[in-house]
Design a protein around this nucleic acid. Structure first.
Lengths: 364, 364
DNA sequence: CGGCGGTATGAATCCGTAA
DNA sequence: GTTACGGATTCATACCGCC
């Protein structure tokens, strides 16, 4: 089977009924850009938990969350992570969220299978449930692991977009976001919460903006009430959900149907210079923006002359704009575009201005 | 508090030369109240890394952090965790700190050996090193795992002390503290950092106030430059350090010997006029800006003493800085921040000056 | 003495493409 | 596969020297 054929055959934007391991094993290999997984937590709660006023806490005690032992949980973890890795594209990545009950086992198995951890990201809850018994710290965070399929995976990371989300400061590995409450929290027919561990859309928004591009395929093997699908749809990504509980699928279907995709312009995010087209310095000479023999100036006033082939010649060294700059600074590397200036109407102007002119012509 | 025979034989308040596994195996079983461990992280760094200004990052490339494979690291982890568990008292507990490189393997092995995880605690660094290449999130936190020796261990948890340290709010599982820099950062004869990964005393302060009582025995198998020992001594706990590097032992000995000499220069302030997040008074204590036992002065010259949990004790009353101030004034309320002063170089300085210093670090 | 600007540095798995 | 090289990339804080 060819990759294109199978990729076209992906059940996009649907929720598949079944066990996630079996379903993933039935999907074509190397076909998914990102996996977001919120696996069962193996909470091992001993009996019921009560608040000081004796009201019962609605703990995570569903049948699917009971595992006899670490062994059973590890086998389960191995199996679904292996199935997930097979369907990931070579440059694909995975996010897994968990708590101290399960995240260490998940993280170790990720490493064992050859996934390459990129960050652990802490979701710091601004409004966590207190520890009612006063015997431990308020459990105020959960941990997400972000990992590439391989060490060599060229994973997607929208650095500039995340930086913009954070008011111009590089995004950190700890995210402060409130838990899912209020009208965002889905209810069943009885008015009870539809799912015990519904994640906030703000969390998925940050994950998907940061780690995917519009049109990417995102698979969620533990779809639940479909937060991943809802946010993927909003953001113009395709999703594949897998969920074996009919009640959750039903809620998710209804939820996602109501979601509207953001406008195309709203989906545009800041891009880094790295993603812009490369302009050889020689083009500036070819186009006559700089003439052979013209002088360029370093920040410290040193002079180099432009040669016809787009190299520079300084006092005792010649080479590219980067090489000569690095040599003058005694530095391992140098960005010649921002290092050198030329004289225009008597004022010194960075040569990067000329590159921007060419780039703006290219995108017209 | 009487000590058992085996505890009496312990080499208290000394730094033992040797491999931590062998040394621990030579100690009597069930004799230690708490273990704090900062094991090698197995960073697996490849080439050099440069900042955008071309300066080179001083990497952690020490011999002691080199492991050939996950298998080798896991064997090491198994061995020291096993030795640690044997010497823990039945109600003892362990803290282990790590990063995503190693913490998942440590956590899984803790669970495998029967330790019972109580919380994972995230140290959110207020001033982490950025991600210089813009390829990942700022690595802004480290993870600590707190676990009892057994599921049944009646571990020590000073809930009220921690709550007091946090100005009456239950302490959360995420702690914001700055990394160890400035005068607290120990230097060698050449003026270089004595240890590449020295932990801040504020971190150990919170761990030891929360998880031990005065007179408890705290063992640190990877003692390094002895932060655990220094804070233990400050807080009236006994410590046992194990360290195989002579250079680290030497620095640690010297450091701990003069622990009571409080470095007043840490009080130098730089007032910021930015946003004003809530700062618990306890942080001033944790961070060494005010010492437990230090005197605070009311406007009328009355004296109250600072306690390790961030409360004050006056002649006949104890409580928060606000409560004690209100009591002295016979007033319904009192702003302790502007009410109390401490002595710096013989002059009375409002404690609010210290709060401003912390705020300038928090608003990032 | 204070403010200001320049410099140093911290547990880091830190590039992408063309030849 | 490997090599070569263009060129993109940083935040909080401490300290020092200079007005």
């Amino acid at each position: 089977m060819t990759k294109t054929k199978s990729a076209a055959a992906l059940p996009l934007n649907t929720i598949i009924d079944g066990d996630c391991i079996e379903v993933m094993n039935g999907l074509p290999e190397a076909s998914v850009d990102l996996i977001f997984a919120d696996p069962p937590y193996n909470l091992q709660l001993k009996g019921d938990l009560h608040r000081p006023d004796n009201s019962r806490v609605d703990a995570v005690d569903d049948e699917w969350d009971q595992f006899a032992s670490f062994k059973v949980y590890d086998d389960f973890t191995k199996a679904w992570l292996k199935a997930a890795r097979r369907i990931l594209k070579p440059d694909g990545a995975i996010w897994v969220i968990g708590s101290y009950h399960n995240i260490f086992r998940v993280g170790a198995e990720l490493q064992n299978q050859g996934y390459w951890i990129l960050n652990d990201v802490v979701w710091r809850k601004s409004n966590p449930m207190p520890n009612f018994r006063g015997k431990r710290f308020t459990n105020a965070h959960e941990t997400m692991i972000w990992a590439g399929r391989d060490e060599s995976s060229k994973y997607t990371f929208n650095y500039e977009a995340l930086k913009a989300l954070n008011e111009g400061i590089q995004m950190r590995s700890d995210w402060v976001l409130p838990i899912c409450t209020g009208h965002e929290r889905l209810k069943d027919e009885n008015g009870d919460k539809a799912h015990p561990t519904q994640k906030p859309e703000s969390l998925l928004h940050r994950v998907l903006v940061g780690a995917t591009n519009p049109g990417d395929v995102i698979l969620d093997p533990f779809f639940g009430t479909g937060t991943t699908g809802a946010v993927a749809k909003m953001l113009g990504r395709d999703f594949i959900g897998i969920e074996r509980e009919a009640a959750y699928r039903k809620v998710a279907e209804k939820r996602i149907a109501k979601v509207r995709k953001f406008d195309r312009e709203a989906l545009q995010v800041s891009v880094s210079k790295r993603a812009e087209p490369r302009v050889p310095f020689g083009q500036l000479v070819e186009r006559g923006m700089l003439r052979p023999g013209e002088a360029l100036y370093s920040p410290r006033g040193q002079v180099a002359k432009v040669r016809a082939d787009g190299t520079l010649i300084g006092n005792d060294v010649k080479g590219s704009i980067h090489q000569v700059g690095a040599h003058l600074e005694g530095a391992p590397s140098c960005n010649g575009w921002t290092y050198w200036t030329f004289k225009q109407d008597g004022k010194k102007v960075p040569i990067d201005v000329l590159r921007q002119q060419i780039r703006s012509e290219m995108t017209n």
